[in-house]
Structure formats: structure tokens, C-alpha cells
Design a binder for these strands. Structure first.
Lengths: 101, 101
DNA sequence: AAAATCAATCGTATATTTGCGATAACAGAT
DNA sequence: ATCTGTTATCGCAAATATACGATTGATTTT
């Protein structure tokens, strides 16, 4: 992709909000997070049963949510328990809130 | 992209929220909307001066925001005045609000 | 009718996203 | 040390997103 030479600098809040929004920009990831809100936590395998998607695809969505900071994984061998990352969740919540006023 | 044969059906709210989030998933578009919140309205040309991006690029971002329903354009020849689409804005606001509880 | 102004669209290049199957990696059990 | 269950990563293909310059389109002014 061609990029403007001087890459644009946005405020930290703008960047962070966009990052959260991007992570939320796919219905599967919204659905995963809704699921996590209900169950409080869950394993990758649970989601593979809930959604008609390949395990690798689910794993990839989880990775993006993790990269965005919205969830965190906890080792529960041989499984991994995923939960909402409450600090960042609240951060996202307040960023969206103030954005929409 | 390979797609699962049975394309997944999500709730309307999930789809709509993801669509809004996707539109917000780029810092330039966040910045444009913040600008619109301050100015209440503005012309494409204004934005071209504010952001170091080509006119066509700005126009494309505006198109996506319009497609997502977050803004609307009003003909003010020879310009086009863009404003927040308040109904959908409030819809988005409440969807994010209930999503984050 | 012609010119001027402004925004949208087209064509192109590159990057990123989304999805899958196959394979690797990890931790506990045998 | 090997096997088992679970999840992550790799490699690929197709779709979408991002950016630009050039062109087109629409509307007012001249």
C-alpha cells in the first residue's frame, strides 16, 4: 500500500480507540466476547463447538482479541482459559463512552 | 478467501455493532468523527487541509463512514456538508453501551 | 455554452484480513 | 521417553482495505 511519506500522528486516545474498534470490527469477535461476558471464561474448544469455524480460525480471532488487549489467556493444562481483560475492557468502555459523549 | 459453506448467521445487533466498530477501526476515521463532533459539520475540503492525505483518500474514508451510517452528506453546492447522522450515532452509542454493560 | 470549483470514482499497487488444512508446540498422563 | 489432548502457528488462497494520481461528474458562476 502506498503510504504518505509523513505518516500521520494521532493522539494516543485516537490510536487506542481505533485499535479496540478494529478488534471489535468482526461479528465473530463480537460474538466471542458476548460469549465470554456470559460464561465469564471459556476454552478455545468451547468456541470451536459454538461457531462453525475451523479451530485455527477461532484461534486467530482469539489472538487478535488478545493483541488488542480485550482478553487474556490463562494456562489450565491442557487447555487455555480465556477471560475478559477487565482493565483494558474498562479502558475501552470509557474510551467509547467519551467518544460518543 | 475460503469461506465456510454455511455462512454464519449472527444476531442483528451483533452484525450492526461489528459494522459500526469496523468503521471506527481506523485512526483517520476516528479523527474525522472527532472533528465532526467539534465542528458539528464540515466539508470534504476542510478535512483535506487538516489531514496530510490525498483528497481521494479522504473521500474514501468519508464513503465508509457514510456506508456505516455514521455520517450523512448534504448538498451545499458546490460543496458537500458532512454531519454526524444522529439517529445512527445514537444507535451506535447504545449498542456499544450495552455491549460493555 | 464555457469555465470554475469541489467531491466522487476509476485504476493501480501494496498490505492486511479472513479462512482453511496441516503441522508444530506444549503440558500432563502413561 | 512416548502418547494424548489441546491450542498455536505455518503456508496458502482469496477477499478487503488503504493509499495515491488521474479522471469524471455535478453544480454554480461567468
Amino acid at each position: 500500500m502506498k503510504r504518505s511519506l509523513e505518516s500521520i500522528v494521532y493522539s494516543q486516545d485516537t490510536e487506542v480507540l481505533a485499535k479496540f474498534a478494529k478488534a471489535l470490527g468482526h461479528p465473530t469477535r463480537i460474538a466471542i466476547l458476548k460469549h465470554l461476558e456470559n460464561q465469564s471464561c471459556c476454552f478455545t474448544g468451547d468456541l470451536v463447538e459454538v461457531f462453525p469455524l475451523a479451530q485455527s480460525t477461532i484461534s486467530q480471532h482469539l489472538k487478535e482479541l488478545k493483541n488488542a488487549g480485550l482478553i487474556q489467556g490463562e494456562l489450565k493444562p491442557p487447555k487455555i482459559k480465556y477471560c475478559i481483560h477487565h482493565d483494558n475492557w474498562n479502558k475501552a468502555k470509557s474510551l467509547f463512552q467519551e467518544f460518543f459523549e
